[in-house]
Design a binder for these strands. Structure first.
Lengths: 208, 208
DNA sequence: GTCTATATCGAGATAGAC
DNA sequence: GTCTATCTCGATATAGAC
């Protein structure tokens, strides 16, 4: 039988090992980037041998691609959830809070994604130009509707999303710098939450 | 004579070639990261041969370090310029504008720095924990003074700086994503400027 | 399915001619 | 100072025993 990649019905053990490899690979790739990582590092962290890794995945690139595909599915979920029928400011501030929570809970995923984009998105450019663009265009329309209805201040919806992504993911992607500056604060996320909530409430307040 | 690195008086030609190599290296490193770049790529872009590069620099790492050292000097200049005696809101919004302008003018430097931090700052961690931390602590004190004097709203100064860095550098570091989303906008920076200026004026307004 | 051993290749760095 | 040719090493991927 060929590689498990082409197997129709993976056994429970196969699924578990695949999961363990992806888990180890996420550690390594997020810390060192794709080219800075070696299969040996992944193998060591997964407690397997190098050829054994290549029994489950066709190549180093295949592992990387699998991680990115999985990531994109969950990464956009909070934005999909932005609800036109909800209370505008609570919807957007709720989105900010959820994005920050995801960043705190999944810093490795955030770094993996940042690395990919920084290198020019060689693996996910089509998804950015397709699914992401469509989703952002759709939700920017929702925000524009709120603005026209006078429910929030008049701001550029796209830049609103960019600023939310930038400010939240910063705490994972640049954590070394954040920690270097806030040396004696052990949880930067704790104070980042209220800061960002306050910032976006002021930005969106229709009265100002 | 040994490597030019140890030469006391580099000739004009030596300085020019060194500059050309650094210029080419900045291109390559910012696009592909340190490990994704090869000396051959740098050589080709500089119009030189591989061994010739290694005549001017001891190693690939030495080129990278030279770029980072040079970068740090100019990167912090705008923050140093934040003036306690100035008008608070204009000082901070001026800093935002300058940071955005620097990001627009030096996107390669921004990406080089982002790559370095994302990988855990292997080369500049001491500078982050030293010079950067000291500078930010100092300027956070200035901002705190403005808050106590009632000149700006009560916000966390450190998170203010983080948000400024994140929102401005985002347009260089994640430019592929920004361009994918804003497909038919040819200059995202043009609209980002007013958006950020408005955002920080609202955030800092002491009346709210 | 999992290992040891190995083929192969790319890239950093050096030797030595010019 | 600059080149061609080469050494060397590390890493991906494969062969083949168990």
């Amino acid at each position: 039988m060929a590689r498990s990649q082409s197997t129709k019905r993976p056994t429970r053990i196969q699924r578990e090992k695949t999961r363990e490899i992806l888990e180890a690979a996420l550690d390594v790739f997020s810390e060192r980037g794709f080219r800075g990582s070696t299969i040996d590092m992944i193998a060591t962290r997964a407690g397997l041998s190098k050829p054994n890794i290549l029994y489950y995945f066709d190549s180093k690139e295949a592992i990387h691609k699998a991680l990115l595909d999985e990531l994109l599915k969950t990464w956009l979920a909070p934005l999909y959830a932005l609800d036109e029928a909800g209370e505008p400011i609570e919807e957007i501030c709720g989105y900010v809070a959820q994005k920050l929570k995801m960043t705190q809970k999944f810093p490795r995923e955030s770094k993996l994604f940042a690395n990919e984009i920084l290198q020019g998105a060689p693996h996910v450019l089509p998804e950015l130009q397709g699914e992401l663009r469509d989703l952002v265009t759709l939700k920017a329309g929702v925000v524009s509707g709120w603005i026209k209805a006078g429910k929030i201040a008049d701001i550029d919806p796209m830049h609103l999303f960019f600023s939310i992504w930038a400010t939240t993911q910063h705490y994972a992607d640049f954590d070394i710098q954040v920690r270097a500056v806030m040396r004696d604060v052990n949880d930067p996320f704790a104070s980042a939450g209220p800061f960002l909530d306050n910032m976006y409430r002021k930005l969106l307040n229709p009265a100002s």
